[in-house]
Amino acid sequence: MKAVNPLLIILLVLLVVSGLGLIVFILLHSGKGTGVSDMIASSVYSSQSGTSIVEKNLDRITIVLAIIFMLSLIALMLIYPQGTINS
């Protein structure tokens, strides 16, 4: 039985959590067009006060998650080149 490398576990957890977070936070952004999401958003958010702050925070969280995702992916690629992780 082989010991599991803790660095591999940490990088994989970061990759999966940031990937799922990106999916969720990208879907939380409001639509910019005239589609169904715009109609729903206009009925839910009838007042425009505070929506710009929410959008800025969503943008910041999405950017941070994207940076974490890319850094963990690059670290996995550099530390464990193709074929070096044995199951």
Score class of each variant (00 low, 15 high):
residue 25 F to I: 11
residue 48 Q to E: 14
residue 54 V to K: 08
residue 26 I to C: 00
residue 67 I to P: 08
residue 81 P to K: 05
residue 67 I to S: 14
residue 77 M to S: 12
residue 5 N to F: 04
residue 82 Q to D: 12
residue 55 E to C: 04
residue 41 A to K: 14
residue 67 I to R: 09
residue 79 I to S: 07
residue 50 G to R: 08
residue 66 A to W: 05
residue 63 I to G: 04
residue 14 L to A: 15
residue 27 L to S: 15
residue 69 F to G: 03
residue 45 Y to E: 10
residue 8 L to A: 15
residue 44 V to K: 10
residue 76 L to I: 02
residue 36 V to D: 06
residue 21 G to H: 01
residue 69 F to P: 02
residue 70 M to R: 05
residue 63 I to P: 01
residue 46 S to H: 04
residue 73 L to G: 12
residue 85 I to F: 03
residue 43 S to K: 12
residue 32 K to G: 15
residue 62 T to C: 02
residue 64 V to S: 15
residue 57 N to A: 12
residue 31 G to P: 06
residue 51 T to N: 15
residue 81 P to R: 03
residue 13 V to F: 11
residue 85 I to D: 07
residue 9 I to R: 13
residue 74 I to Y: 06
residue 29 H to S: 13
residue 56 K to H: 07
residue 66 A to T: 08
residue 1 M to Q: 09
residue 33 G to S: 14
residue 61 I to H: 02
residue 65 L to H: 01
residue 30 S to R: 11
residue 7 L to V: 07
residue 25 F to W: 05
residue 73 L to T: 10
residue 35 G to L: 00
residue 23 I to N: 09
residue 11 L to C: 09
residue 44 V to I: 09
residue 11 L to A: 08
residue 71 L to W: 01
residue 84 T to G: 02
residue 26 I to P: 00
residue 34 T to P: 07
residue 81 P to I: 01
residue 63 I to L: 15
residue 66 A to K: 05
residue 18 S to Q: 02
residue 15 L to D: 05
residue 6 P to C: 06
residue 60 R to I: 05
residue 7 L to Y: 11
residue 38 D to N: 06
residue 81 P to C: 03
residue 8 L to V: 14
residue 11 L to F: 03
residue 69 F to S: 04
residue 35 G to D: 04
residue 35 G to C: 00
residue 9 I to G: 01
residue 31 G to T: 08
residue 30 S to M: 10
residue 82 Q to Y: 09
residue 12 L to K: 08
residue 83 G to W: 00
residue 39 M to L: 14
residue 21 G to P: 00
residue 25 F to R: 04
residue 51 T to A: 15
residue 75 A to C: 09
residue 33 G to M: 13
residue 29 H to T: 08
residue 52 S to V: 14
residue 73 L to A: 13
residue 73 L to M: 12
residue 64 V to I: 14
residue 77 M to Y: 11
residue 18 S to M: 02
residue 85 I to Y: 03
residue 78 L to A: 10
residue 37 S to D: 12
residue 72 S to I: 00
residue 3 A to E: 11
residue 69 F to Q: 05
residue 83 G to C: 07
residue 50 G to Y: 06
residue 30 S to P: 09
residue 79 I to D: 05
residue 22 L to E: 06
residue 59 D to L: 09
residue 79 I to L: 15
residue 18 S to K: 01
residue 45 Y to F: 15
residue 14 L to R: 04
residue 8 L to H: 14
residue 84 T to M: 07
residue 78 L to H: 02
residue 60 R to A: 09
residue 11 L to N: 03
residue 53 I to C: 10
residue 45 Y to W: 15
residue 87 S to F: 13
residue 64 V to E: 14
residue 79 I to N: 08
residue 72 S to Q: 02
residue 2 K to D: 06
residue 52 S to I: 13
